[in-house]
Amino acid sequence: MTTPSAESAFAGQPHEPHAGSLAGRLNWLRAGVLGANDGIVSVAAIVVGVAGASASSPALLAAGSAALIGGAISMALGEYVSVSSQRDSQRALIEKERVELATDPDGELVELAGLYEERGLSADTARRVAVELTERDALRAHLAMELNIDEDDVVSPWNAAGASALAFLIGGILPLLAILLPPDAVRVPVTFLVVLVALGFTGVIGARLGGSPVGRATVRVVIGGALALVATFTVGTLLGTSGVV
């Protein structure tokens, strides 16, 4: 009876993330969900606040558009800077490990075997595993065991920035349309409803990606968004009734 290789075993389970650019995909998916959530809350808070002070459609359009464009640029820039720092750190660690393997391969082999022993393997088995993995791809073996890094999964700041900006625009357009399209009398209630439903949707997606309880994560997002809307609408209403605006 032939024992299947690790590669063939993994090939038979394509739904499981054994390899590939999993870290990169999760990174831009996370950025996308956060961007959409921020777009919904930020733009909604601004247009609802303006609606509390004035029912002028041009004012709402101007405020909402400025929030939409400015927020998308800000999200993209922040994500790019953050992920660039993470990428630079990963690259520096990879280069450091490459130098250590070139200058002290025997010491690195002993270190790798020791790490496998710490995971519960016997000394002989740990040594054999370390030798075989080193012969196959020493750098990849050390990165995976010592640093939990895959050389092929170095995060892309461009992917994260693009996903974040696009998601912010998609999320932010919802409250902008919700405040502009309905009749004046129902603008704010419709916007509240659209925003809370959209936040519930992003909460579910975020929980699925993070593996956290869906109900708890969704309630947090929805309550936070509702508080933001109530606060800005209250401020806008007070400014409007006081004659300040």
Rank of each mutant, 00 (worst) to 15 (best):
M1Q: 03
T2N: 12
P4H: 04
S5H: 04
S8Q: 08
Q13G: 11
S21Q: 13
S21N: 10
S21P: 02
G24C: 05
G24N: 15
L26N: 11
L29S: 10
G32I: 07
L34M: 15
A36P: 14
V43C: 03
V43G: 07
A45W: 08
I46N: 02
V47D: 00
V48W: 01
V50R: 04
A51H: 05
A53L: 13
S54F: 08
P58Y: 11
A59Q: 12
A62G: 14
A62R: 14
S65I: 04
A72R: 10
I73C: 09
E79W: 02
E79S: 12
V81H: 06
S85D: 12
Q86T: 12
D88H: 12
A92Q: 10
E97W: 11
R98T: 08
E100T: 15
A102T: 09
A102I: 13
D106K: 11
L109F: 12
V110S: 07
E111K: 07
G114D: 03
L115Q: 08
G120I: 00
L121T: 00
S122K: 00
T125S: 04
T125L: 06
T125A: 03
A126W: 00
V129I: 06
L133G: 01
L139V: 02
L143Q: 00
A144E: 14
D152H: 05
V154Y: 01
V154R: 00
V154N: 00
V155I: 11
A161V: 02
S164V: 10
A167W: 02
A167F: 03
L169G: 00
I170E: 05
G171V: 08
L174W: 08
P175Y: 09
L176E: 06
L176Y: 02
L177I: 08
L180F: 10
L180N: 02
P182M: 12
P183H: 14
V186H: 06
V188C: 10
V188N: 01
P189S: 13
F192P: 04
V195H: 11
L196I: 13
V197I: 04
V197P: 09
A198V: 08
F201D: 05
G203P: 15
V204G: 04
G206I: 01
A207R: 11
R208S: 15
L209T: 13
L209R: 07
G210P: 02
G211N: 09
G211C: 03
P213Q: 06
P213H: 06
A217F: 09
R220V: 14
V221Q: 15
I223M: 09
G225Y: 03
L227T: 08
L229Y: 01
L229D: 00
A231W: 04
F233R: 11
T234N: 05
G236D: 02
G240W: 06
G243R: 03
V244N: 13
